[in-house]
Simulated scan of single mutants.
Amino acid sequence: MSLKFVERQQLKEKPNIKEVAFGTTFTDYMVSADYNKDDGWHDFKIIPYEPLSLDPSTAVLHYAQTVFEGLKAYKVDGETVLFRPEENFKRLNRSLERLSMPKIDENQALESLIELLKIEKDWVPNGKGEALYIRPVVFATSKSINVLPSSEYKFLIILSPVGGLFSQDGLGTTKIYTEDKYVRAVRGGVGEAKFGGNYASSMLAQEYANEKGYSQVLWLDGVEQQYLEEVGAMNIFFVKNGELYTPKLNGSILPGVTRKSIIEFARDRGYTVHEDRIHIDDFKKGLEDGSVTEVFGAGTAAVVAPVSHLNIHGEELKVGDGEVGPVAKEIYDTLTGIQTKRVEDKFNWVKEVK
């Protein structure tokens, strides 16, 4: 793929990755493309990372037509690799369709990312748990406050080096607060899309949970508020009587790439995996009687985030012995091992940047 490349006059100094907070430092370049009804998606190019100039009437500022993705690049033996990037661009298109935004050519988007990574290869860190976070985003750019789908859009891919979320010794655990008042999404809404508004609407409950000493929110369904949906910005899994459970996709739950990978790996490994409608009271009972031995979130940033305690209806419950469980550790070690080519990739999930 031939992309126009606009070179910047001076490259940035590479940061000390140990001192970089997640999502605050960005590389020298980004991918940019534009859409209009006459030309479709066009003008794919790699340009210096720089501020954007937007008219005050720009549609995204008023009606929030914006979707994004999140994936990572890893450095393995000096080479850059990606983990299932095709799935991210498939999901990007599903999100675009739901927000009445024009789909993008998935191959062209992926190829533009690969060209960007070739240029930015020195930004990919190679320490344990470190990666280059990749953020594709599409947003409406028509200069109009008419309540209609925009006629113009911009596509960007920006890159941000990130350190490991856990200690060098392995996984850590987190405490979760079950939200009883607010909801993240409802069936028939936009919960299954990676839509910016889903995250904005979650922030008040997140602040409330943080004030109570919990790091994430366990979201219940938006209709009855009785069924498990997501935890923070992650999908949720738990182990009950040695079997793996996760809420089934219902239109309000984001179909995570990590979620899909865990289910495929676990079934291949011989685990029984249930995708069910899970009532909070049944889940609570399992924690109380000890049949639920592990709970963990799953997503791009952490891969696996084990839970040590849950607050449900004001009562704090310990998960198992409060430590990282064997199933979560096996999944984490295997997925991160595949991502960094330390474990055989029998699923062909890893894509090399060449």
Score class of each variant (00 low, 15 high):
residue 312 I to S: 03
residue 68 F to G: 03
residue 289 D to G: 05
residue 3 L to K: 05
residue 98 R to H: 06
residue 298 A to R: 05
residue 86 E to D: 15
residue 264 E to M: 13
residue 269 R to P: 02
residue 321 D to S: 14
residue 24 T to M: 12
residue 225 Q to E: 07
residue 162 V to D: 00
residue 306 P to I: 07
residue 351 K to P: 05
residue 70 G to P: 08
residue 289 D to W: 07
residue 259 R to I: 10
residue 6 V to S: 11
residue 322 G to D: 09
residue 85 P to V: 00
residue 151 S to H: 06
residue 34 D to C: 01
residue 222 G to M: 04
residue 194 K to E: 07
residue 234 M to Y: 01
residue 197 G to K: 08
residue 63 Y to G: 11
residue 133 Y to P: 05
residue 282 D to H: 11
residue 243 E to W: 10
residue 209 A to E: 09
residue 301 A to H: 06
residue 34 D to M: 02
residue 273 V to C: 05
residue 196 G to N: 13
residue 87 E to P: 04
residue 104 I to G: 01
residue 324 V to W: 02
residue 107 N to G: 15
residue 346 K to G: 04
residue 250 N to V: 09
residue 11 L to V: 07
residue 190 V to T: 13
residue 296 F to Q: 00
residue 159 L to Y: 10
residue 186 V to E: 05
residue 218 L to M: 15
residue 262 I to L: 11
residue 241 N to T: 02
residue 304 V to K: 02
residue 220 L to G: 11
residue 277 R to M: 11
residue 249 L to K: 14
residue 347 F to E: 13
residue 198 N to G: 00
residue 329 K to I: 10
residue 236 I to V: 15
residue 72 K to T: 07
residue 143 K to H: 11
residue 5 F to K: 10
residue 87 E to L: 15
residue 109 A to I: 02
residue 40 G to W: 08
residue 98 R to I: 15
residue 120 E to H: 11
residue 22 F to L: 09
residue 327 V to F: 10
residue 330 E to I: 07
residue 146 N to A: 14
residue 95 S to I: 05
residue 198 N to T: 01
residue 238 F to R: 08
residue 123 W to F: 11
residue 307 V to L: 12
residue 167 S to A: 15
residue 221 D to C: 10
residue 294 E to Y: 09
residue 350 V to S: 06
residue 57 S to R: 12
residue 291 S to Q: 12
residue 332 Y to H: 13
residue 285 K to I: 06
residue 194 K to S: 04
residue 267 R to L: 10
residue 306 P to K: 07
residue 339 Q to E: 13
residue 338 I to H: 01
residue 152 E to H: 13
residue 61 L to T: 03
residue 131 A to Q: 08
residue 129 G to C: 11
residue 59 A to S: 13
residue 243 E to P: 03
residue 307 V to R: 05
residue 175 K to T: 10
